[in-house]
């Protein structure tokens, strides 16, 4: 019978072995080339189609409600959506409900605008081809305020340019004038956008969320309160696939596969051992 110290030591070693295996599983696909094709899932397709069918010049409100903690999942999604908008000559209006989301909005807009001439042969200028509104305090109140007077809620954009008279916001007086909105959220903001935005001011709403939030959105898809959604890194990879622009999400899919398979194998092995021990009448160590 092992002493408590020996058991702790053993558990620590097992823990460190698991950590090493997980680290190896993430790095492996970047060293050994793997090719695992995949196809876009149903709700990702619906989201893509909802944006793709918009006419050039349509206003797409993008609310990037996440902070750097969710960067790995939602930043590729932000980039894919902005690329899609720029490719189709849609006018993205970018904002956030999170103070820390401002940096993410700015980074995504500037990166997407900078690469646009190379990717699509189109120059995109702030205030004309897109609007970076930035952050305002308020949450649900901000959405309600935008529903009545969008330019009153954001009197100036992120760069301190007045929104009144801004070409990118011409004809957009409230949320009712938006052609579509997409909320990329690491928290409960999708539900807030549904209740205080979509259901009050009647515009098509899509969502992209971290994988942790994704399962909670299915009830809203069935009731058509959401037109489509992207769940986690896989959702971002689906969008990149449909856009034919391989990015960080697509690059991450092989590593995602290997880590998931590793974890599945670990859980199955541990359970097999548990069941065998139980059949033999032993307690699990």
């Amino acid at each position: 019978m092992a002493t408590p110290q020996e058991q702790i030591k053993r558990m620590t070693i097992i823990r460190h072995i698991i950590y090493a295996l997980v680290a190896a599983a993430v790095v492996l696909p970047y060293i050994v080339k793997m090719d695992m094709p995949f196809s876009a899932s149903k709700w990702s397709k619906k989201m893509y189609e909802a944006i793709d069918k918009l006419e050039p010049g349509s206003r797409v409100l993008l609310s990037f409600d996440y902070d750097p903690a969710a960067e790995a999942e939602l930043y590729p999604m932000s980039m894919a959506l902005l690329r899609h908008c720029f490719k189709k000559d849609l006018i993205p209006i970018v904002m956030t409900h999170w103070p820390d989301g401002v940096g993410m909005c700015k980074k995504a807009c500037e990166e997407a605008a900078a690469e646009s001439p190379k990717l699509w042969g189109k120059e995109k200028i702030s205030g004309r081809d897109f609007a970076l509104l930035g952050f305002r305090v308020g949450g649900a109140d901000l959405i309600l305020n935008m529903g009545e007077n969008l330019k009153g809620a954001f009197t100036k954009d992120f760069y301190d340019e007045p929104t009144a008279g801004m070409a990118a916001l011409e004809g957009v007086d409230s949320l009712r004038d938006i052609d579509m909105a997409v909320d990329l959220a690491a928290g409960i903001h999708v539900q807030v956008w549904i209740a205080y935005g979509h259901d009050r001011f009647d515009f098509p709403l899509g969502a992209g969320t971290t994988a942790v939030i994704a399962p909670k959105l299915y009830p809203f898809l069935q009731t058509d309160q959401l037109v489509g959604f992207l769940g986690g890194l896989r959702g971002a990879a689906d969008y990149e696939l449909m856009l034919e622009q391989s990015g960080k999400a697509t690059q991450g899919m092989q590593a995602q596969s290997v880590t998931h398979v590793l974890l599945i194998v670990m859980i199955v092995v541990a359970n097999a051992r548990f069941i065998v021990n139980r059949l033999r009448g032993k307690q699990e160590a």
């Binding site: 097992i14 698991i18 997980v22 750097p68 960067e71 790995a72 940096g103 541990a270």
Partner: peptide, 25 residues
């Protein structure tokens, strides 16, 4: 801020794998 914030939450991947192996029965 980005490296700190992103890394501190990614550590949970290791803890989750370890916990799942040891307790998910």
């Amino acid at each position: 801020q980005i490296p700190c914030s992103a890394t501190i939450f990614s550590i949970l991947a290791f803890f989750m794998a370890s916990a799942a192996f040891r307790t998910f029965r």
